[in-house]
Design a protein around this nucleic acid. Sequence first.
DNA 1: GCGTATATACCGACTAGTCGGTATGTAGTA
DNA 2: TACTACATACCGACTAGTCGGTATATACGC
Lengths: 205, 205
Amino acid sequence: MARAAATRGERGERNTRSPMEERIIAAAVTLFAERGFDGTAVQQIVDHAEVTKGALYHYFDSKDELLYEIYRALIGVQSADLDAIVERGLPAAETVRAILVDVVTTTAKRLPEAVVFFREAHKLHDKQMVAYRADRRRYHESFRKVIADGQASGEFAGTVPAETVVQIAMGVVNQLPVWFRPEGRKTAEQLGNEIADFVLAALRV
Amino acid sequence: MARAAATRGERGERNTRSPMEERIIAAAVTLFAERGFDGTAVQQIVDHAEVTKGALYHYFDSKDELLYEIYRALIGVQSADLDAIVERGLPAAETVRAILVDVVTTTAKRLPEAVVFFREAHKLHDKQMVAYRADRRRYHESFRKVIADGQASGEFAGTVPAETVVQIAMGVVNQLPVWFRPEGRKTAEQLGNEIADFVLAALRV
DNA sequence: GCGTATATACCGACTAGTCGGTATGTAGTA
DNA sequence: TACTACATACCGACTAGTCGGTATATACGC
């Protein structure tokens, strides 16, 4: 009856994973990124992870749950980072730069997760989808507030609405996994800084 | 043997569609956008289009071909528009604005196609994938050249590499179908102009 | 105008295989 | 004995694509 997973379902989410869970998730991420969620058979996941189907269904209730777990790991890190950055209370420009560099580097560090996520998010079901949207919204809103505050204090120009600035910035980041290559000429940090330069130039008074 | 499709395959692509083909493609776009390519059964497509499976396979060789046709329709329009805009030989800033407004409005006008496309492009096979990449590359390169020329002539600042500017701009556009709502407060044209304002502000000398 | 030949457009039952998930078994531990 | 942590065999639903066939249109000799 997939006790571990059932328990997780009943009392919310755990935050540690057993080595077995880790292997299964890792295989799922790789394959989902390569062939898509629907394009990957559960049997392929267990083969790749060198475990059996019984083991997978012992730890997870369904294939869908794997998708949700992948997403949770990514958004968890990024949300925590964002909160930490905002709490520092730096000037708006420095905060924006820190946010962008962070989100670019964390995304680059977990490219397959990001690929899967931005491609398959719409396949989450009901409760999971609600949780997903809430997290995204929270992230988006925190970021927007940083920019709106900067505009209000006169540190930033108010030419483009803060909402649009965030949509643009997040759009770039969400698209990153499509074209960013870790072996390319630019490091994630350089790229994050270039994106920050760009955004800050547009906000320049 | 799917004569129409076979012929298309042999001598390149046709550019007109019979009403029957139109209905099938329309159904496919709707369903792929809603449930994904792999998540949509061919039977669902024919049910939705109110045709039979025989008819579908009479006009198309495979489910994959539907995906390719969807993509062709979108890129065809956008590439043609881009070429027309560049040919006008306007100042760089105006050209950039025209490009961005055009790509935003054409994307908005074909949201489901765009959704399908940016989500499922990686499922194209070999030859189709090559054609896809070539088209994208051509578009990307034309756009980059406009910006690079503007930077060379001093009309634009050279702070951020033209390549990055294009990646950012296209990233925004590719992400559009995820969050743009036609019934929302902003029209596609307004949004296109806001994005242009943003990009041009970042390029301001 | 009429018969025949041939091509096109479509129909829908069918097949071979794949899918996510489950039921049952067993080895190890407490 | 009871429980966890798996392993294995299997199930029924569903899949993309095929195939034998039909209905209609067009072409052409007479």
